[in-house]
Simulated assay, not measured.
Amino acid sequence: MTDFQSWARHTQQRMEQVLDTLLPPADIAPQKLHEAMRYAVLGGGKRVRALLAHAAGELCGAPKEKVDIAASAVELIHAYSLVHDDMPCMDDDDLRRGKPSCHKQYDDATALLVGDALQTLAFQSLATPQLCTHANRQLEMLNLLAIASGSRGMAGGQAIDLASVGKELDQSELEYMHIHKTGALIRAAALLGAYCADDVDAERINAIDHYAQSIGLAFQVVDDILDAEADSETLGKTAGKDAESNKPTYVTILGIDRAKQLAQELLENALTPLASYGEDATRLHQLAQFITQRSF
């Protein structure tokens, strides 16, 4: 088995090629929109959600070509959310993935349309006929991504986030927000990768679900720590933005040391249901370590 860095790099390159093929060429009408869509998606990001989909698919024996489709759908939803989050009416951030945000590189109207188009392209990708043998499974996958992206998932979490600016939240309220804003799409990425297998074992699905819920929260805890400790060059986005915006975070509520301890606890909780799967779960183990220890 190749080491984690080699596997991750290969999977990231693979996903870059898949997304490059999936996105409309920049030289066909409407050229500006297609160019901006490609700008927002390609050439940046760690592809953590795609890595999760592939790691979960590996545990369930899913064909990589099918996982590519599911992973690309999640990456497109994630990219659209970043474009919209950075806009002046949301988090108003000028930097994303080490380059100007989409609305700064183009304009607000184009950025709005980029998000809309990427969202619809994600569902177009997940609806492709070659993804599933059974139509009911594909409908289940489409439903999963829709819920994870909408008002009961990512969009709802963002609404709660915007409404929480300047307010004091307790840990349970903050957790509720991030289960929706960040965790829902991370959970969907892992489950969609698993569902790409022809024969899905219910026990493995439950283990992956438990893992993904814990690692989704851990991802946000670490993000809050990074926002407090790292610089903009390291982050690829504006450092200290949460504090500047007076947003409640795990750091502001718990402090740095307790937040780091919580990330470790969530890591251990994520790995517990994978214990019986041995080497089959190696990539999920490695990815959890990467997510929770990428800064400290």
Rank of each mutant, 00 (worst) to 15 (best):
G157R: 00
G157I: 00
G157H: 01
Q158I: 07
Q158D: 06
L162A: 06
A163E: 14
A163K: 08
S164M: 04
G166D: 07
G166S: 03
K167R: 12
K167N: 06
K167C: 08
E168Q: 11
E168W: 00
E168V: 14
L169S: 08
L169I: 04
L169T: 02
D170H: 03
Q171L: 09
Q171F: 11
S172H: 03
S172I: 01
S172M: 10
S172K: 06
E173Y: 02
E173R: 05
L174F: 02
E175T: 14
E175I: 09
Y176R: 07
Y176K: 08
M177T: 14
H178C: 08
H178R: 02
T182K: 00
G183M: 09
G183S: 05
G183C: 06
L185W: 12
L185A: 07
R187C: 12
R187F: 10
A188F: 02
A188D: 07
A188G: 11
A189R: 07
A189W: 04
L192R: 14
G193M: 05
A194V: 05
A194T: 13
Y195L: 11
Y195I: 00
D198Y: 12
D199G: 14
D199P: 14
D199Y: 12
D199Q: 15
V200L: 06
V200G: 05
V200D: 04
D201F: 01
D201G: 01
E203W: 14
E203H: 12
R204A: 13
R204K: 15
R204I: 12
I205Y: 12
I205S: 10
